[in-house]
Amino acid sequence: MSEEDYEEDGEMNGKKFLYVNRRGPYGTVYALESLEVVLIGAAFEQDVSLAFMDDGVYQLKKGQNTDGMGMKNFSPTYRALEMYDVEKLFVSKESMDERGLTTEDLIVDVEVIDNAAMADLMEDAEVVLSF
């Protein structure tokens, strides 16, 4: 569905929520608790997009193994987002490049967008939740 379609029946799709994730997992609780908001928020049937930039892209890194440090590995939950109809995951190209990451390194399918497209996404949002 194109952005135009969303605008035409904006009422039906609710507000455009954008979650901006800029922190890596485990070092702080923000990634985990952001994901919890997304999961709860899915029940409200809003138009949800997730953006991952800066160290936030590491949240989606494949192969996370927390066995040695005692925290729960919550990365599989990103794969479950699809079941909650949260399907618009955007990743910053610049942040990926800086970290030497490609989409092959990520646990879910994402759309890689550059800063300009990310800026458009932000301007298009109606509610921005930053974590």
Binding site: V20, R22, M122, A125, E126, V127, V128, S130, F131
Partner: peptide, 8 residues
């Protein structure tokens, strides 16, 4: 402004 975005 229409929306506020916090860069934390």
């Amino acid at each position: 402004h229409d929306v506020v975005q916090s860069w934390l």
